[in-house]
């Protein structure tokens, strides 16, 4: 069963490595809030995201990218709330990280 993982904390507060330890090959990450700060290319967190297998889809909440003046990075699909809802339906379950 696939899981959509929701991340909302800065990767410097909630290290990505523990999230990645649980991530299955067909799971997906949706970055919201300060978790989007992982998308600064050249950051440690960004490098870590680059190590994910290509099967792991990456999404980011559009409003959080816009607020932080972050462009949609390669591999990362920006989503609005309706698309967020549909993603939840698309994966078998949702894991909201604190």
């Amino acid at each position: 069963m696939t899981t959509l993982h929701l991340l909302s904390q800065s990767p410097w507060r909630q290290p990505l490595d523990s999230v990645l330890r649980l991530l299955g090959a067909d799971d997906a990450l949706l970055l919201c809030g300060d978790a989007c700060q992982a998308l600064h290319t050249g950051s440690e967190a960004w490098s870590l995201l680059q190590t994910l297998p290509a099967t792991v889809r990456l999404y980011a909440l559009q409003e959080d990218l816009q607020a932080r003046n972050l462009g949609a990075a390669e591999r990362v699909t920006p989503v609005d709330y309706p698309a967020f809802v549909e993603l939840c339906a698309q994966y078998d379950k949702v894991n909201g990280w604190l």
Binding site: T2, L22, G24, A25, D27, N95, G96
Partner: peptide, 15 residues
Amino acid sequence: ELPALLARFDLVMTL
């Protein structure tokens, strides 16, 4: 084993 464990369950909650 960790992702395999997660995959076995219908629901997940992280606290």
